[in-house]
Amino acid sequence: MEEAKEFLQLNKEEAESVSRLTIHPHRLGFQCSFYEDFALRGIRVDSVQRGFVSCTFRVPPRLTDKSGNLATGAVANLVDEVGGAIVHVEGLTMNVSVDMSISFLGTAKLNDELQITSKVLGRRGSYSGAIVLVRNKVTGELIAEGRHSLFDKHGSKL
C-alpha cells in the first residue's frame, strides 16, 4: 500500500500545476463540465429511434494509450454513456449503472472512425438493460461489445 501511495504522490511541480486548474461546476443548460468536454467531446448522434441509437466517434489523442490505441477505459466510458442514454427518459433523472460487462474484441487506433450503436434489451420495473456495439466504421471490425444494466429509482416502490 505504501508503494502505491508513493507512486501516486505528486511532485512539487505537478502539485503546483494542479493547484492552478480552474474547474467550474457544471450547470444544466450552460457550459460543459470538465468530464463532458474531455470524455464525450466528438460523439455525433447519427440516428435515434425508439429503443435504438447510432453514433459516430473519431478516436482523439486524449483517449489513447501509450501504444496509440483507444484506451479500454475510454471504451468502458462509451458503453456507459451510450448505454445510459438509450434507456434515459426525458424529464427524469439519469439512471444508475448497476452492472457493465464489456468484451474487448479488437483495437481502435488514433483517428479511426467508430460506429457506436445501442439497443434497449428490455425493461422490467425499475431495471433496464442495453447492449452497446463499438465497430470500426470503415472495416466493420467489432472493437467491443458491452452489456449495461441500469436502475431507475422513480419506478421503485422503495
Rank of each mutant, 00 (worst) to 15 (best):
A4H: 07
A4L: 11
K5L: 13
E6D: 15
N11H: 07
N11T: 14
K12D: 14
E14G: 04
E14Q: 15
A15N: 13
T22A: 03
R27N: 11
L28Q: 13
F30D: 13
Q31C: 06
C32E: 10
D37M: 05
F38Q: 11
I43S: 05
Q49W: 00
G51M: 08
G51W: 01
G51E: 09
V53I: 13
F57N: 02
L63I: 01
D65S: 09
N69G: 00
L70G: 05
G73W: 09
A74G: 13
L78Y: 05
V79K: 12
V79E: 02
D80C: 12
V82G: 00
V82N: 06
V87Y: 02
H88C: 12
H88M: 12
E90M: 04
L92T: 15
N95E: 13
V96S: 14
S97N: 04
D99R: 12
S101D: 12
S103G: 09
F104R: 01
K109I: 02
N111F: 07
N111V: 00
E113D: 15
I116G: 05
T117Y: 02
T117W: 03
K119C: 08
V120C: 11
R124T: 06
S128G: 12
I131Y: 03
G140N: 07
E141Q: 15
E141F: 00
A144T: 02
G146V: 01
H148T: 13
F151K: 09
G155E: 06
G155W: 07
S156R: 04
K157W: 03
L158M: 10
